[in-house]
Protein backbone atom coordinates (compact mmCIF):
# COMPACT_ATOMS: atom_id res chain seq x y z
CA UNK A 1 0.00 0.00 0.00
CA UNK A 2 1.41 3.33 -1.05
CA UNK A 3 0.33 6.66 0.46
CA UNK A 4 -0.93 9.37 -1.88
CA UNK A 5 1.56 12.10 -2.76
CA UNK A 6 2.58 14.74 -0.26
CA UNK A 7 5.28 17.31 0.29
CA UNK A 8 7.63 16.27 3.05
CA UNK A 9 9.41 18.66 5.38
CA UNK A 10 11.81 17.80 8.12
CA UNK A 11 12.34 21.14 9.85
CA UNK A 12 15.23 21.52 12.28
CA UNK A 13 13.39 23.92 14.56
CA UNK A 14 9.98 24.14 16.15
CA UNK A 15 9.55 27.62 14.66
CA UNK A 16 9.91 26.29 11.13
CA UNK A 17 7.47 23.47 11.88
CA UNK A 18 4.92 25.95 13.21
CA UNK A 19 5.22 28.23 10.16
CA UNK A 20 4.64 25.24 7.88
CA UNK A 21 1.49 24.38 9.83
CA UNK A 22 0.28 27.96 9.56
CA UNK A 23 1.04 28.01 5.84
CA UNK A 24 -0.68 24.73 4.96
CA UNK A 25 -3.48 24.86 7.55
CA UNK A 26 -5.71 21.79 7.44
CA UNK A 27 -3.69 20.38 4.54
CA UNK A 28 -0.74 19.67 6.82
CA UNK A 29 -0.16 16.82 9.26
CA UNK A 30 2.50 16.46 11.87
CA UNK A 31 4.50 13.22 11.76
CA UNK A 32 5.89 11.93 15.06
CA UNK A 33 6.62 8.21 15.50
CA UNK A 34 4.40 7.30 12.56
CA UNK A 35 2.96 4.24 14.32
CA UNK A 36 -0.56 5.43 13.65
CA UNK A 37 -0.14 8.04 10.95
CA UNK A 38 1.87 5.99 8.43
CA UNK A 39 -0.86 3.32 8.45
CA UNK A 40 -3.50 6.00 7.94
CA UNK A 41 -1.50 7.38 5.01
CA UNK A 42 -1.14 3.93 3.46
CA UNK A 43 -4.83 3.18 3.86
CA UNK A 44 -5.45 6.68 2.51
CA UNK A 45 -7.63 7.46 5.47
CA UNK A 46 -5.38 10.51 5.71
CA UNK A 47 -4.15 12.27 2.56
CA UNK A 48 -2.48 15.47 3.72
CA UNK A 49 -0.80 17.68 1.12
CA UNK A 50 2.08 18.30 3.49
CA UNK A 51 3.79 16.22 6.14
CA UNK A 52 5.81 18.00 8.82
CA UNK A 53 8.18 15.50 10.44
CA UNK A 54 9.12 16.44 14.01
CA UNK A 55 11.95 13.89 13.97
CA UNK A 56 14.75 16.35 13.23
CA UNK A 57 13.78 18.88 15.87
CA UNK A 58 16.44 18.17 18.45
CA UNK A 59 14.90 19.43 21.65
CA UNK A 60 11.54 17.64 21.79
CA UNK A 61 12.76 14.46 23.42
CA UNK A 62 13.64 14.70 27.11
CA UNK A 63 12.59 13.70 30.60
CA UNK A 64 13.55 15.98 33.47
CA UNK A 65 12.33 17.65 36.65
CA UNK A 66 11.36 21.31 36.74
CA UNK A 67 12.38 21.95 40.36
CA UNK A 68 8.74 22.49 41.32
CA UNK A 69 7.71 18.88 41.77
CA UNK A 70 6.85 18.21 38.16
CA UNK A 71 8.30 15.93 35.56
CA UNK A 72 8.57 17.52 32.14
CA UNK A 73 8.46 15.11 29.22
CA UNK A 74 9.07 16.20 25.64
CA UNK A 75 6.40 15.23 23.13
CA UNK A 76 8.83 13.23 20.98
CA UNK A 77 9.93 11.02 23.87
CA UNK A 78 9.34 7.45 22.79
CA UNK A 79 7.55 4.76 24.77
CA UNK A 80 10.79 2.79 25.04
CA UNK A 81 12.59 5.81 26.48
CA UNK A 82 9.85 6.27 29.07
CA UNK A 83 10.01 2.58 29.95
CA UNK A 84 13.81 2.72 30.32
CA UNK A 85 14.05 6.01 32.22
CA UNK A 86 15.33 5.75 35.81
CA UNK A 87 13.74 9.10 36.64
CA UNK A 88 10.32 7.89 35.49
CA UNK A 89 10.72 4.58 37.33
CA UNK A 90 11.48 6.48 40.51
CA UNK A 91 9.11 9.44 40.24
CA UNK A 92 6.23 8.17 38.16
CA UNK A 93 6.11 4.36 37.87
CA UNK A 94 2.60 4.58 36.39
CA UNK A 95 4.04 5.97 33.15
CA UNK A 96 6.58 3.19 32.96
CA UNK A 97 3.97 0.54 33.62
CA UNK A 98 1.70 2.01 30.96
CA UNK A 99 4.41 2.47 28.34
CA UNK A 100 5.35 -1.20 28.69
CA UNK A 101 1.92 -2.46 27.68
CA UNK A 102 1.55 -0.36 24.53
CA UNK A 103 1.71 -2.48 21.37
CA UNK A 104 4.93 -4.42 20.94
CA UNK A 105 8.68 -3.82 21.12
CA UNK A 106 8.90 -2.28 17.64
CA UNK A 107 5.93 0.03 18.23
CA UNK A 108 7.40 1.16 21.54
CA UNK A 109 10.73 1.91 19.87
CA UNK A 110 9.07 4.42 17.51
CA UNK A 111 5.78 5.61 19.04
CA UNK A 112 5.92 8.84 21.03
CA UNK A 113 4.11 10.17 24.08
CA UNK A 114 3.00 13.27 22.17
CA UNK A 115 1.77 11.20 19.25
CA UNK A 116 -0.25 8.88 21.44
CA UNK A 117 -1.98 11.83 23.13
CA UNK A 118 -2.49 13.94 19.99
CA UNK A 119 -3.81 10.92 18.10
CA UNK A 120 -6.43 10.42 20.86
CA UNK A 121 -7.25 6.86 19.99
CA UNK A 122 -10.37 5.95 21.99
CA UNK A 123 -8.47 2.90 23.26
CA UNK A 124 -5.01 4.46 23.67
CA UNK A 125 -3.17 3.49 26.86
CA UNK A 126 -1.16 6.64 27.59
CA UNK A 127 -4.21 8.91 27.69
CA UNK A 128 -5.59 6.90 30.63
CA UNK A 129 -2.38 7.32 32.63
CA UNK A 130 -2.13 11.02 31.79
CA UNK A 131 -5.71 11.56 32.97
CA UNK A 132 -5.18 9.69 36.24
CA UNK A 133 -2.02 11.71 36.89
CA UNK A 134 -3.90 14.97 36.23
CA UNK A 135 -1.07 16.01 33.93
CA UNK A 136 -1.07 19.16 31.79
CA UNK A 137 -0.27 19.31 28.09
CA UNK A 138 1.60 22.15 26.44
CA UNK A 139 0.30 23.27 23.06
CA UNK A 140 2.71 25.47 21.17
CA UNK A 141 1.20 27.73 18.52
CA UNK A 142 2.69 30.32 16.19
CA UNK A 143 2.28 33.10 18.76
CA UNK A 144 2.19 31.51 22.18
CA UNK A 145 2.18 28.41 24.35
CA UNK A 146 -0.87 27.35 26.29
CA UNK A 147 -1.39 24.66 28.86
CA UNK A 148 -4.34 22.32 28.52
CA UNK A 149 -5.55 20.15 31.39
CA UNK A 150 -5.57 16.49 30.47
CA UNK A 151 -9.26 16.26 31.39
CA UNK A 152 -10.01 19.01 28.82
CA UNK A 153 -7.75 17.60 26.10
CA UNK A 154 -9.65 14.61 24.70
CA UNK A 155 -12.78 15.78 22.90
CA UNK A 156 -13.95 12.72 21.00
CA UNK A 157 -12.92 10.03 18.54
CA UNK A 158 -9.39 11.08 17.42
CA UNK A 159 -10.27 14.66 18.37
CA UNK A 160 -8.38 16.87 20.81
CA UNK A 161 -8.29 20.46 22.01
CA UNK A 162 -5.25 21.12 19.79
CA UNK A 163 -5.73 23.68 17.00
CA UNK A 164 -4.55 22.81 13.48
CA UNK A 165 -1.63 25.26 13.82
CA UNK A 166 -0.52 23.96 17.22
CA UNK A 167 1.98 21.28 18.14
CA UNK A 168 1.86 19.36 21.38
CA UNK A 169 5.36 19.95 22.72
CA UNK A 170 5.46 18.91 26.37
CA UNK A 171 3.63 17.01 29.06
CA UNK A 172 3.90 18.18 32.67
CA UNK A 173 3.29 15.46 35.24
CA UNK A 174 3.06 16.30 38.93
CA UNK A 175 5.51 14.25 40.99
CA UNK A 176 3.56 12.78 43.84
CA UNK A 177 5.87 10.73 46.00
CA UNK A 178 3.14 9.66 48.40
CA UNK A 179 1.00 8.07 45.66
CA UNK A 180 0.36 4.49 44.71
CA UNK A 181 -0.60 3.68 41.17
CA UNK A 182 -1.45 1.01 38.63
CA UNK A 183 -2.57 0.65 35.03
CA UNK A 184 -4.51 -2.48 34.11
CA UNK A 185 -5.61 -3.32 30.62
CA UNK A 186 -7.97 -6.00 29.35
CA UNK A 187 -7.12 -7.07 25.83
CA UNK A 188 -7.70 -10.22 23.77
CA UNK A 189 -3.96 -10.65 23.21
CA UNK A 190 -1.12 -8.95 25.10
CA UNK A 191 -0.14 -6.51 22.35
CA UNK A 192 -3.68 -5.55 21.34
CA UNK A 193 -5.47 -2.32 22.02
CA UNK A 194 -7.44 -2.21 25.27
CA UNK A 195 -11.04 -3.40 25.44
CA UNK A 196 -10.85 -1.60 28.76
CA UNK A 197 -7.91 0.15 30.39
CA UNK A 198 -8.00 1.68 33.86
CA UNK A 199 -5.31 3.88 35.41
CA UNK A 200 -5.36 4.66 39.12
CA UNK A 201 -3.25 7.13 41.04
CA UNK A 202 -4.07 6.93 44.72
CA UNK A 203 -3.17 8.68 47.96
CA UNK A 204 -4.12 6.87 51.14
CA UNK A 205 -4.46 8.48 54.55
CA UNK A 206 -2.65 6.97 57.56
CA UNK A 207 -5.77 5.01 58.48
CA UNK A 208 -5.86 3.47 55.00
CA UNK A 209 -8.84 5.42 53.65
CA UNK A 210 -8.67 7.10 50.27
CA UNK A 211 -7.50 10.68 50.68
CA UNK A 212 -7.23 11.50 47.01
CA UNK A 213 -7.53 9.56 43.77
CA UNK A 214 -7.15 10.20 40.04
CA UNK A 215 -8.68 7.81 37.51
CA UNK A 216 -8.25 7.45 33.77
CA UNK A 217 -10.43 5.20 31.63
CA UNK A 218 -9.83 4.09 28.05
CA UNK A 219 -11.35 1.69 25.54
CA UNK A 220 -14.92 2.25 26.70
CA UNK A 221 -16.33 5.09 24.66
CA UNK A 222 -15.37 7.58 21.94
CA UNK A 223 -12.60 9.07 24.06
CA UNK A 224 -10.47 8.40 27.12
CA UNK A 225 -12.07 10.05 30.16
CA UNK A 226 -11.63 10.81 33.82
CA UNK A 227 -14.65 9.64 35.86
CA UNK A 228 -14.67 12.40 38.45
CA UNK A 229 -17.94 11.18 39.97
CA UNK A 230 -16.25 7.89 40.88
CA UNK A 231 -13.22 9.72 42.27
CA UNK A 232 -15.58 11.72 44.50
CA UNK A 233 -17.31 8.57 45.72
CA UNK A 234 -13.99 6.92 46.57
CA UNK A 235 -12.61 9.84 48.56
CA UNK A 236 -12.86 9.16 52.29
CA UNK A 237 -13.74 5.50 51.67
CA UNK A 238 -12.09 2.57 53.38
CA UNK A 239 -10.89 0.88 50.17
CA UNK A 240 -11.69 -2.67 51.16
CA UNK A 241 -13.01 -4.91 48.36
CA UNK A 242 -16.64 -4.38 49.42
CA UNK A 243 -16.36 -0.59 49.44
CA UNK A 244 -14.54 -0.52 46.10
CA UNK A 245 -17.01 -2.96 44.60
CA UNK A 246 -19.91 -0.77 45.68
CA UNK A 247 -18.72 2.18 43.58
CA UNK A 248 -16.93 0.31 40.77
CA UNK A 249 -19.91 -0.24 38.48
CA UNK A 250 -20.70 3.47 38.40
CA UNK A 251 -17.58 3.97 36.28
CA UNK A 252 -19.67 3.79 33.11
CA UNK A 253 -22.58 5.79 34.50
CA UNK A 254 -23.79 8.28 31.89
CA UNK A 255 -21.27 6.92 29.35
CA UNK A 256 -22.21 5.65 25.91
CA UNK A 257 -20.33 2.34 26.03
CA UNK A 258 -18.94 0.98 22.74
CA UNK A 259 -19.51 -2.51 21.49
CA UNK A 260 -17.60 -4.41 18.81
CA UNK A 261 -16.58 -7.97 17.96
CA UNK A 262 -14.23 -8.06 20.94
CA UNK A 263 -16.75 -7.02 23.58
CA UNK A 264 -20.41 -6.06 23.68
CA UNK A 265 -21.34 -2.85 25.56
CA UNK A 266 -22.66 -4.93 28.47
CA UNK A 267 -19.50 -6.99 28.74
CA UNK A 268 -17.31 -3.94 28.40
CA UNK A 269 -19.19 -2.07 31.14
CA UNK A 270 -18.86 -5.14 33.35
CA UNK A 271 -15.12 -5.35 32.61
CA UNK A 272 -14.70 -1.68 33.46
CA UNK A 273 -16.07 -2.22 36.96
CA UNK A 274 -14.00 -5.35 37.51
CA UNK A 275 -10.84 -3.71 36.22
CA UNK A 276 -11.40 -0.63 38.35
CA UNK A 277 -11.57 -2.84 41.43
CA UNK A 278 -8.48 -4.75 40.37
CA UNK A 279 -6.55 -1.60 39.48
CA UNK A 280 -7.24 -0.06 42.89
CA UNK A 281 -6.14 -3.28 44.60
CA UNK A 282 -3.03 -3.34 42.43
CA UNK A 283 -2.26 0.28 43.32
CA UNK A 284 -2.62 -0.49 47.02
CA UNK A 285 -0.23 -3.42 46.59
CA UNK A 286 2.28 -1.38 44.57
Amino acid sequence: MIPSKFDYYSPATLQEALSLLSEYGDDAKVLAGGQSLVSLLKLRLASPRCLVDLGSIGNLSYIHEDGADNLLIGAMTRYAEIAESKLIAEKCPLLRQTALVVGDVQVRNRGTLGGSLAHADPAGDMPAAILALKADLKATGPKRDRWIKSEDFFLGMYATALEANEILTEVRVPVLNDRQSAYLKAARRPSDFAMVGIAVCLKRAKNGTCEDVGLGVTGITDKPYRPQHVEAKLRGQKLDPAAIGAVAQSITEGIDVNGNIHASPEFRAHLAGVYLSRAIQAAIGS
Binding site: Y8, S10, L31, G34, Q35, V38, S39, D53, G55, A80, V105, Q106, V107, N109, R110
Partner: peptide, 14 residues
Protein backbone atom coordinates in the same frame (compact mmCIF):
# COMPACT_ATOMS: atom_id res chain seq x y z
CA UNK B 1 16.59 -0.76 17.84
CA UNK B 2 14.02 -2.93 16.09
CA UNK B 3 11.37 -1.12 14.09
CA UNK B 4 8.81 -2.10 11.47
CA UNK B 5 10.07 -0.72 8.18
CA UNK B 6 6.57 -0.74 6.66
CA UNK B 7 5.59 1.93 9.19
CA UNK B 8 8.36 4.32 8.29
CA UNK B 9 9.06 6.51 5.29
CA UNK B 10 12.43 6.16 3.63
CA UNK B 11 12.96 9.93 4.02
CA UNK B 12 12.55 9.54 7.80
CA UNK B 13 15.57 7.25 7.77
CA UNK B 14 17.84 9.83 6.17
Amino acid sequence: RTIKSCLMLAVQAN
